[in-house]
């Protein structure tokens, strides 16, 4: 189930899919999954991470002007300022 995915991350050209309890490795590259999940509620928050917006709690501005997204499982992910407008469009 796509809705069970919290986020998808690319680390050293390997792609990992994080759900509430499990982490899966995908043979596909992040951009391929990004294309496949276009119709679902996924948005790129930085160049290596695709987040399910339904699992997003809030975005926080840190003191050094960095942005951090908190997910419903408590995990924190860095948000690139380049993608903030895209996130806004997807949420609205």
């Amino acid at each position: 189930m796509v809705s069970a995915i919290f986020y998808i991350e690319s680390v050293d050209k390997r792609t990992f899919i994080y759900t509430k309890e499990m982490v899966y490795r995908s043979e596909k590259r992040l951009y391929q999954l990004e294309n496949e999940l276009k119709e679902y509620d996924f948005v790129k928050v930085n160049r290596t991470c695709l987040v399910n917006i339904n699992e997003l709690v809030h975005i926080k501005t840190l003191s050094n002007s960095r942005l951090e997204a908190e997910l419903t499982n408590g995990e924190k992910i860095i948000v690139s300022r380049t993608y903030i407008l895209e996130i806004k469009r997807k949420i609205f």
Binding site: L56, V57, H58, I59, K60, T61, S65, L67, R81, I84, L85, I87, K88, I91, F92
Partner: peptide
Amino acid sequence: LGITQLKRYVQAINLKLVEK
């Protein structure tokens, strides 16, 4: 200017997330 706009976007996103 960039920082001000960014903060506005973040505020709007958080507000929408709370509403959702």
